[in-house]
């Protein structure tokens, strides 16, 4: 294949990939060859969840966007190492959780505690103007904000467990594969993470009065 042919393939793929019906295996295989346009199609299948996991992990929309981009780039860089006989989504979400955990640790190392962030109001949840909204919606919004904040006060490992299990409903086996820990550890950590969340909730009047 000469230089010209390579360019032709690259450009044609970039324009036509949207209408081609690639199987997941094909998309992965072509992405492993370094084809950016095919990789973009592949990552579209996962990017919303990547972003949402990141958003729930860090609790900040802009940071989640940066982290999700970093995850996608990391996947692009290391996709050659992915073995087709394992689950691609598990691999993708493993990278996502690892990047998020690293990022949270990095922030902690920079002496900005998450509590401090929350106290300084830098902890960012999309602000909704609650005026004129029915009481039930306002309550739901407040509960959501409180739950988000409580999750974000947990350690990154516990956050990952709560998000994977309670937000996204992954099974214990799936979580053990994503986080590379055994099922026993999933069970004990999840129990601990939920207990910590319960403790935070017990202290919150709003939640106590209206939700339980």
């Amino acid at each position: 294949m000469n230089f010209n042919d390579k360019i032709i393939l690259k450009v044609i793929r970039n324009y036509e990939v949207r209408i081609l019906d690639y199987s997941l295996k094909d998309l992965i295989s072509k992405s492993q060859d370094g084809d950016i346009s095919v990789f973009e199609e592949l990552i579209k299948l996962y990017q919303k969840k990547i972003f949402n996991i990141a958003y729930r992990m860090v609790g900040n929309y802009d940071d989640a966007s940066d982290i999700a981009q970093e995850v996608c780039i990391k996947i692009f860089r290391s996709i050659k190492k992915f073995k087709q006989d394992s689950s691609f989504s598990t691999w993708v979400y493993r990278i996502t959780c690892n990047v998020c955990i690293d990022e949270i640790r990095k922030r902690k190392a920079n002496t900005i505690s998450l509590t401090a962030i929350n106290e300084d109001k830098e902890y960012k949840i999309p602000i909704v103007d609650k005026r004129g909204l029915p009481d039930e919606i306002v309550e739901n919004k407040e509960t959501e904000e409180f739950i988000m904040q409580s999750i974000n006060e947990l350690s990154p490992e516990y956050r990952a467990l709560i998000i994977l299990r309670d937000v996204y409903g992954y099974t214990y086996i799936e979580i053990s594969k994503i986080l590379c820990i055994n099922i026993g550890t999933v069970k004990s950590r999840l129990n601990r993470a939920r207990s910590l969340l319960k403790e935070k909730i017990k202290k919150n009047e709003l939640f106590n009065d209206k939700n339980v």
Binding site: K49, F51, N52, A68, Q69, P126, T143, I201
Partner: peptide, 26 residues
């Protein structure tokens, strides 16, 4: 109650410029 509220968190949409920024980085 905790589990139920976590499940209700749902999904947020990607930022509008997500794909554009990702494309440039890629």
């Amino acid at each position: 109650g905790v589990i139920d509220n976590c499940r209700r968190l749902g999904e947020v949409d990607l930022p509008g410029d997500f794909n554009k920024n990702l494309h440039e980085k890629l």
